[in-house]
């Protein structure tokens, strides 16, 4: 089952390479049909809400994309698009340097 899922998703990605979101939505739909649970289609928060600036001072925004231990959450989990993830990680790293966000949360 896993094999069929991966093969179909890869073929889908090959068909519509141009519009990036199309290939992703295709993957999500296929995941909903193939398995019991329905996975919600992930969209880039910054594209949808039209957040232009990802600033290192905006701790409340950035902390949503940082895991419990202080790690940057990968794109595949948050659904952020590549250009925004690049800016986001830059901002998180700047915020870490000025002690607004932790490098590693202590336990």
């Amino acid at each position: 089952m896993a094999d069929t899922a991966t093969s179909s998703s890869s073929s889908g990605g090959g068909q519509d390479r141009g519009p990036r979101r199309d290939s992703r939505s295709g993957g999500a739909r296929e995941g909903g049909g193939g398995r019991k649970f329905f996975r919600r289609k992930k969209v880039c928060k910054f594209c949808v809400e039209k957040i232009d600036s990802i600033n290192y001072k905006d701790v409340r925004l950035l902390s949503g994309f940082v895991a419990e231990r202080g790690k940057i959450v990968p794109r595949r989990l948050t659904g952020v698009c590549t250009p925004h993830q690049r800016r986001l990680s830059e901002a998180i790293k700047q915020a870490r340097n000025i002690a607004l966000l932790p490098f590693a949360a202590r336990f």
């Binding site: 001072k57 202080g70 870490r96 000025i98 002690a99 607004l100 966000l101 932790p102 490098f103 202590r106």
Partner: peptide, 18 residues
């Protein structure tokens, strides 16, 4: 005054100025 995310010179908070 803000809480620092980690200890800096053994301080756990500080005044931020921009």
């Amino acid at each position: 005054k803000r809480r620092l995310a980690y200890l800096v010179r053994r301080f756990s908070d500080g005044f931020y100025i921009l």
